Simulated scan of single mutants.
Amino acid sequence: MANKEEKSEGKESSWKDFIYNPRTGEFLGRTASSWALILLFYVVFYGFLAGMFSLTMWVMLQTLDDYTPKYRDRVASPGLMIRPRYLDIIVNRSNPEQYNEYVQNLENFLLDYNDTLQEQNLQCEQGKHFMQDDEEEKQVCRFKRSQLRQCSGLADKTFGYSDGQPCVLIKMNRIIGLLPKGQPYVNCTAKRDTPLHMQYFPTEGHIDPMYFPYYGKKAHANYVQPLVAVKLQLSEQDYNTHLTIECKVEGSDLRNNDERDKFLGRITFRVKVTK
């Protein structure tokens, strides 16, 4: 029994001595000077690493331009997007509450295109790229929503949804420095045997070169993309069926047939209108 008690006390004493040994002054197996040296080493070591990281970040930032990305070769052609922001549009023309989300989406998107705001922008020369290399703050070419006429939401507040002939807005993604050759225009087709009647605004879906190039968010702060509105002129025979529609940008060197990217220069969406 005495041996067991002595062994138990020895273990307890050994454990306590490891935490703090009053005879040697060691804490967790190290003296105060040893702890000071190892902490000093880690402070210097990690301080050196932090300094190296800060230096390399500073050097890298010196190579960047606040106005233009350093590397822009991954996306040579823009993608197409639509508004309202849905790829499957289902419209019940007799139920305003059902299609109101599409109408509100279009209205919100076109706020920046209101004629009163666009009057403050420049009336650029049509048919020519608007180059502004010497100006730090770039001017913006005017694009009024009234140019979208029947799809502007001005005369018809429902953008044709109440009539069962909905409007869809097509826009190209922004790419800094893009200068498309030729005369770009948007062309839409329905994937079925018979053609679907559509009306384009501006006329023939043209995208004027004067809206290019785009100089970036900082230099071109108030820039608005040119739009093409497509009014789907559906008839009674077109109702109650899903219509698959593909829109492409054509008439220029912009790509629209890359099978690896379904949105490069084109977009496909579906529309179904019921009474």
Rank of each mutant, 00 (worst) to 15 (best):
S34H: 07
A50S: 08
V43S: 11
L64C: 06
L40T: 15
V59Y: 04
S54H: 12
L55N: 01
F45P: 00
T56A: 15
Y46E: 14
L55Y: 02
L39C: 09
M60C: 05
G51L: 07
F45H: 00
G29S: 01
S33K: 06
S54P: 07
W58P: 06
T31S: 12
W58K: 11
A50C: 09
M60L: 06
S34P: 02
S54L: 14
L37Y: 05
G47S: 10
V44F: 05
T56V: 15
T63H: 05
S54V: 10
V44W: 02
G47V: 13
E26C: 04
V44H: 03
F53C: 10
M57R: 03
F48H: 05
F27H: 11
G25H: 06
G29R: 00
L64N: 07
T31D: 14
F48Q: 13
V43E: 08
T63W: 04
L61S: 11
L28P: 08
V44Y: 03
Y46P: 09
Y46K: 10
I38Y: 06
A32F: 15
M52W: 02
E26D: 10
M52I: 11
F53Q: 15
I38L: 09
A32E: 14
M52P: 01
V44A: 08
L28T: 10
D65N: 07
Y46F: 13
I38G: 02
T56H: 12
M57I: 01
W35G: 07
L39I: 11
G51Q: 04
R30N: 03
L64A: 05
